[in-house]
Design a protein around this nucleic acid. Structure first.
Lengths: 156, 156
DNA sequence: GAATATTATACAGGCCGGTGAATAGGGAGT
DNA sequence: ACTCCCTATTCACCGGCCTGTATAATATTC
């Protein structure tokens, strides 16, 4: 019960920021500690960056951390995508301007979500099943090129 | 490009077993090597176990590995569930005989899939959204008990 | 039943993500 | 400009997962 994983801690941070104005990372460390979550200022600093948190001026004139709406689901895009691709994508195929990714059972949605958040310009949209993911590519890009890029990203 | 991840390797093994009869792990190692995938007999042994592969007698009278249909989506259930829970579940709540799990965006399906495959007797079914998962618990079990179990499993 | 082939286990090392201690960088206020 | 406070970076360590070598256990063949 000592350290608790990173996702859980970031989730609590996110909630704390919504519940009350927090003006420093030190303060956040204390609040987490009061919640039984042990973390240092360094860790909190990295968490805030990954969460996309910024310091904003609030009514009282003081500064407080907040997570912009547009960043709510965009934490650490590049790194995250690369890791998810490497962990879950087992096969890449393409046909015309479609790319088909295969994953272990139940993992297609994570990959789809990661791709959506990455906002790659050549990918118009994704549809995820259980272990299969279909990407629609921009016409000018072509499925083959996108498939090659993604295969590289997945370490294949 | 040398080692290639475990999921990818297991996927190739799975396909190789369907394509042709394979009677020994040594043979499988060779076939993988021909595919550019480096692995030893020990690794293959572990992969086959995780995949639930068994040796069956085929028409010719020889033995060959095959993956039973019921094991197609049940690889390494316990360990897998524990890891997925620890990595993705950030919050556990319950109401009556329902349990609500929260995950980072896009990860709910992986957790749901892992729970389904684990086949926990007290969980009647799961419904996954993007970052939320609802479990229906057996009446005799009750949401609170299941929630407590799952929270423990998630390391919360 | 002995010899051989095949598979599983024990142990150790590598790799990578996550974390913390120390420290450097940046602002605000005086 | 100096000082203080806050935040970001560097470096090193820990721990878990994964894999390989060596070896034990098991199955197969004669």
């Amino acid at each position: 019960m000592a350290t608790l994983g990173k996702p859980q801690r970031q989730h609590r941070i996110s909630k704390l920021l919504e519940e009350q104005p927090i003006s420093s990372q030190a303060q956040l460390v204390e609040l987490l500690a009061a919640d039984g979550v042990v973390a240092t200022q360094v860790t909190v600093s990295r968490d805030l960056e990954e969460l996309g948190a910024v310091k904003v001026r609030i009514p009282g004139g003081t500064m407080a951390y907040a997570i912009p709406e547009h960043a709510k689901a965009r934490s650490a895009p590049d790194d995250h995508l690369r890791r998810v691709m490497g962990e879950f994508v087992v096969e890449v195929a393409h046909s015309a301007n479609l790319v088909v990714l295969r994953t272990p059972p139940g993992s297609a949605h994570v990959v789809g979500s990661a791709l959506d958040r990455a906002g790659l310009p050549d990918i118009l949209g994704t549809v995820a099943g259980d272990d299969t993911l279909i990407l629609v590519c921009a016409e000018h890009a072509g499925g083959a090129a996108v498939a090659a890029d993604l295969a590289g990203l997945a370490g294949l």
